[in-house]
Nucleic acid binder design. Structure first.
Lengths: 154, 154
DNA sequence: GTTGCTGCAAAGCTTTTGCATTAGG
DNA sequence: CCTAATGCAAAAGCTTTGCAGCAAC
């Protein structure tokens, strides 16, 4: 994914929604573009920016994250791993990009990802049985990662 | 589900793990047995107990919820809906009881449930591709419930 | 009797908010 | 220019913790 993609896309989406394209919003997004696959908390985004001397207020980080993950912008995805804070990651919006689910190791707490899109039939089933139109899903699998399983076998 | 099931079960599991069967732990569990299908926060459990004149300290509610949802007891399931607090529900452990997933309406914020166990093949796939042994999963579907869809159609 | 549990209040987190100042369009 | 966004600090949740007293076994 070229980093220009998301930055240009952000610009377009912000302007479409008549939000301002501020320096702070740009650098917050850049953190996610520069750290692909990371599930960052507001504090972590703030720390990364501090190290890059692009120090912005923590409250602004929170406000930017909220905006970027809002329905009309939808550039970030908000996720909860139950570790006491909300985390965010780049939303996968490009064609040919698969939905991904999270594999959370209950031993070492590592979070891995797993690309798959097998939930389509399940979603059709939900529509039929419950009249509920699914627009998004979040799946978390808990268990033991390969490393931890090997350590247990020793 | 007879309420005696879980209470006796709690007693056994606590004793097996050499935890004490205190009055507070009993009444916290009773709240969940008396309110099946509810996703209760610590505050809500505390309020319900206050109304039943079984007033116990909020800190004890938190400690009881943590204990009852710990791996070795596993009577409650901790869930996060992203509304700012952790919620708990009775874990389904009986035979012939289906796993259930949550349908969260993005408009009215209602949380419904959907029983299904279609993730077995997906979990086998994860084991094969990632070497990750899935022991539990949590699935949330976001979308529009029937009511909200009808209102939108009007 | 011991040991672990509870209650209370204080502290620790993450997150939100009010308001004066700044900057984007 | 005008309005929205930022920064700072204070406040507002939810949750955890320290410690003296109490209760389960």
């Amino acid at each position: 994914m070229p980093s220009s993609y998301s930055l240009d896309d952000l610009k377009k989406r912000l302007q479409d929604s008549s939000y301002k394209l501020t320096h702070q919003r740009k650098v917050v997004l850049e953190v996610f573009v520069d750290n692909p696959g990371c599930h960052l908390s507001a504090e972590e985004v703030h720390d990364i920016l501090k190290q890059k001397s692009a120090d912005i207020g923590l409250a602004t980080v929170y406000r930017s994250l909220e905006l970027l993950s809002a329905k009309d912008i939808d550039i970030l995805q908000k996720i909860e791993f139950g570790d006491g804070c909300s985390r965010y990651e780049l939303n996968v919006t490009e064609p040919n990009t698969h939905q991904h689910h999270h594999l959370i190791c209950t031993k070492c707490k590592k979070v891995m990802e797993f690309s798959e899109d097998m939930l389509d039939t399940l979603e059709a089933d939900i529509m039929e049985k419950c009249g509920f139109k699914v627009t998004d899903h979040q799946v978390k699998f808990f268990g033991l990662c390969e490393e931890c399983r090997k350590k247990l076998a020793d």
